[in-house]
Design a protein around this nucleic acid. Structure first.
Lengths: 217, 217
DNA sequence: AATAAAACTGACCGTACGGTCGGTCAGTTA
DNA sequence: TAACTGACCGACCGTACGGTCAGTTTTATT
């Protein structure tokens, strides 16, 4: 399969088309592209299979439409994520917390994009970077670089690696959330807020040149 | 689909059967269960499709056999991972580094298991925890708990959360490796050793009660 | 050399797949 | 009211799917 491509803006959509998109997002995010049939989508959307082909040229075209829409939505949400005010520490704290909320509030689309991003297909990874996370990552790196220039971040750390650790801590928690439920010792799996606080506390404590004293209670 | 079940020990295997298993591991790890046909597996293995059914009762049975074998292999490798000697810090450093090496040395099987673990299916997650990562996670948590009792680990941190952050840092790096190649600023994507060192340095620095002075050069 | 078990194959089966087609129908527009 | 359009459907097409089976070749044992 090809990677998703940038396409024309969204036109107005009929109720049926919206139902199709909604069902397809849900199904693709859980079962993947090959695990979902057009019949199943039509059934879940309450329309005929032929109707899907009236709105979308092919199964791939439907999938691309969903990826494009997801990319737009997630990009819009991510847009303001790195623009927080306040101190270096506060900005990172707010980012981590908001990022985690954002992931859980958009589970289906996030799963869809993660699947594409981590598929191992170079073309897909590039598309995800260019159209979605690239800008966010660069801005987050810029924050760390600025912090490093200001002497707030340890000067022996790679800012890109710091950004990776911060985003990764959120993303991995999101991914592993279901699995953590199966581990009795992982009580933090049921408290995303508490996780975010302790996680960012550990990272900042480990990254900052002069770690803050305010610790988690 | 059901979760993988514990089954009988491995018998001796013909060359054909090994070729089938090898091809199936490669294909399933890249394209997922639904993305691989029995014809394709037979083709890549250089045998007839019917021959697969001589060795395995069904596609699911083949998949389960692979998952069981992967679970055995990975468990064996993971077995000694948390048994290092030396100080608290040294043990964690060695663990993180060996864990990362282990992931990259067993890419296909790890991808296979991660797909199952993060599928969102409760039954699959439980199987992965019970048969594979459960023991390792508990031992890693025990290390952190011991470190906390000894006053080496900050007393305001959840040992389970610390274990999660450590394993997650490795696993997420492994997952995102392909994507990181698309980000010019992520030079650390090409230096797993350097990543492991800085990563563990940040985490230990953030977790330890009295952080070590020996930093990455 | 005889033989039985295991490994292996080509041809085939029923089904579900992605996709197409002719056509119905409600709602503009002229 | 006639022409036209977009939304929608049932029936159908060729293909690839998972799986079966009768029969052949290979291998190990006696």
């Amino acid at each position: 399969m090809q990677a998703l491509a940038a396409t024309a803006p969204t036109a107005h959509q009929s109720a049926g088309e919206l139902a199709i998109l909604d069902a397809a997002v849900r199904l693709f995010s859980v079962h993947g592209y090959d695990g979902v049939s057009m019949r199943r989508i039509a059934e879940e959307a309450g329309v005929s299979k032929a109707n899907i082909y009236h709105h979308f040229a092919s199964k791939q075209a439907l999938y691309f439409a969903i990826m494009r829409r997801s990319a737009e939505e997630l990009t819009a949400l991510l847009e303001n994520l790195a623009e927080g005010k306040g101190s270096f520490e506060q900005r990172l704290q707010v980012f981590a917390s908001a990022h985690l909320d954002h992931l859980f509030d958009n589970q289906a689309r996030v799963r869809l994009v993660l699947r594409e991003a981590f598929s191992g297909d170079e073309e897909k990874s590039r598309a995800v970077v260019e159209q979605m996370v690239g800008g966010l990552v660069n801005r987050l790196i810029a924050i760390f670089e600025a912090g490093q220039r200001a002497g707030l971040l340890r000067d022996d750390l790679d800012p890109g690696l710091c950004a990776h650790l911060l985003m990764g801590a959120d993303l991995f928690y999101f991914q592993a959330h279901g699995l953590l439920q199966q581990i009795p010792e992982a009580g933090f799996a049921r408290q995303p807020d508490r996780y975010s606080k302790q996680m960012i506390d550990v990272l900042l404590h480990g990254m900052l040149a002069q770690p803050a004293e305010g610790r988690v209670k």
